[in-house]
Design a protein around this nucleic acid. Structure first.
Lengths: 343, 343
DNA sequence: CTGTTAGCGCCTTCAA
DNA sequence: TTGAAGGCGCTAACAG
């Protein structure tokens, strides 16, 4: 391995041209006569020459790399988004560095610093700190500092007062969609399970949950709103809690995400509780793995990936820094059956 | 954004030292007196200076970046491994570029080329081409070419005749573990569902499946081996096929991975087939999401991540290029009940 | 312990 | 359309 590196000089010499010409052939951004181009390309091929992207980035001051920080790539919601971002990045010749912050503030900072040093063209944030309703002020100022040095893109989150792009799905609309679907199925009593009011996405959902119910003239019962973390186990716990705390129970439960919904399904199945109608949120692959398959709200994943890259490479005239996308209702087995009107 | 970049020169000037000294302070690899170190650090802090990793890599000929290519990061098995690799990489100051090859040969090649240009210190391959029992010869020679230019690490796969590291879990052992567990639960008739013989991991499992059964004096019925892709839906299809093709049915089914197992569970539940005892493989997060939770075989994920980084940074004297790790049986609900001896 | 000074490999004016 | 040459920001001998 690692002999002496072949450089543009070697190619230039063999092709009997200058390094500038080789550089132009590679970049393809300046005119080169067809003849010399072919000559150069042949030599490149011959030597299996791969231009050093580091040197290129250094001199052109453009790395074609973007950084992506998310708490845990195993989370299907995050990995789905990453996939689309990476796919669109690749289309325009970018690579993506992925960092798992594990929801750890120090790690997050270290990663940001690392990406800054790598001179990534943008840092994309998904989950974690950007979903704090009340982020600590020193973190905000840290981010503000970062924003001066590189583009910042926040997916499904946004911290006020920071100069960055934000790409979000309309959470309120999503809740409205499921609620209306459930209402159509005959439900009148709803619970919203999981998440924390201190998390922006949960807060948005809760707000929409309440106001939609009121708009439809239905009961909003705060005891049917249970907080929890975002994983399967927490969903199980949350359901237990709901049942324990209430005499009168709702018939339909909206999970804050698919994982919580699956947790509820499992718990519901395990005990001999009344069978709830349960829906999820996010339309991750889990919602298909589930039994029954989950009705859920889907994000426009591909569009998210596209927009992220658009704002980074500046393909699109982005009039506002905040892009709001439309969610979509995905109906599956978990809400297939109408409810007895007399329940 | 993007004012003129602060450099080591600016820091040197302000701190009244040479650039070499600043460099030493940053790298911390050469002695610098405490006094000057502190002086320099203060200036660095003052200017919020982040050394340019690209320049550093270029001049030191060491990028501290590794490339990671996998077909689809949404696959929980892949994301679990990525997480551990990335975590260990970060511990030693490395970043990881993640590329989703989508099982597409051209994409794979493009990504490899890209990573080569980035001068990543190693390219890690997980899934995809490295699991072909009979890889096309031109792909092999392509990889061989690559191996001359950079370190190659293959996880859970290995292509003969290529100079690379390989880190694998003993698939045969895993199958033996589940089989013995199932036998203990009273089963005597087993099916192996999913995967293809042309995939190395499936081939290894099938081989162990057959030979273990023979060793235990039990029946190996080839009609109880069904091929399929590796996703949930394929698991459903495979179960249908098994039932359709057989009068006499096994009682226990081993899914080639957790996804296939979940597909079988769903199918089993949906129709009124006899209730099979179903186990998965990989111990992904899906095996907990499943209802019932899946008994499965776990890989030593953390150890895999550790070994990958070890071989890359050369921490460990790796006597062989091939590291085989031990799988672990994870018993969960899906095999909780013993089978009637008279079934 | 610290400073000087070539590079690292490529891009990009500036001239020709 | 092409070549010459300085520079991108940092590292690493080599001297002192």
């Amino acid at each position: 391995m690692d002999k002496k590196e072949i450089t543009i000089y070697d190619i230039a010499k063999k092709a009997e041209v200058s390094t500038a010409t080789v550089s132009r052939v590679i970049a393809g951004n300046y005119p080169v006569s067809k003849k010399t181009r072919e000559k150069v390309l042949k030599v490149i091929e011959l030597y299996d020459f791969h231009p050093n992207a580091l040197a290129r980035s250094l001199s052109s001051n453009k790395a074609n790399v973007i950084g992506f920080i998310t708490p845990d790539i195993r989370n299907p919601f995050f990995s789905q988004i990453f996939l689309e971002v990476e796919r669109h990045a690749h289309k325009v010749g970018y690579s993506v560095m992925l960092c798992n912050s594990e929801n750890n503030r120090d790690l997050e900072s270290k990663y940001i610093r690392m990406l800054l040093e790598q001179r990534t063209e943008a840092i994309v944030l998904l989950g974690g700190l950007i979903n704090d309703v009340n982020p600590e002020s020193d973190r905000v100022s840290e981010l503000n500092q970062i924003a001066k040095k590189t583009k910042l893109v926040m997916i499904n989150g946004k911290i006020k007062g920071i100069d960055c792009f934000s790409i979000q799905t309309d959470e309120g609309k999503g809740i409205e969609l499921v609620l209306d679907h459930l209402i159509e199925q005959g439900h009148t009593k709803f619970g919203l399970i999981g998440g924390f009011k201190s998390i922006t996405t949960t807060a948005a959902k809760l707000y929409a949950f309440k106001s939609t119910l009121e708009k439809r003239g239905l009961l909003f019962n705060p005891n049917w709103v249970i907080s929890s973390h975002f994983d399967i186990e927490s969903g199980q716990e949350a359901l237990k809690k709901l049942v324990k705390n209430n005499e009168d129970l709702p018939t339909a439960l909206i999970g804050i995400n698919d994982m919580v919904a699956i947790g509820m399904l499992k718990e519901n199945f395990k005990t001999n509780l009344p069978p709830f109608t349960i829906v999820g949120y996010d339309n991750t692959q889990l919602s298909i793995a589930s039994n029954p398959e989950l009705t859920t709200v889907g994000h426009p994943y591909e569009e998210i990936g596209e927009k992220v890259i658009d704002v980074i490479v500046g393909n699109e005239i982005v009039s506002t820094d905040e892009i709001i996308l439309e969610p979509k209702l995905i109906i599956r087995e978990s809400t297939l059956h109408k409810v007895d009107l007399k329940d």
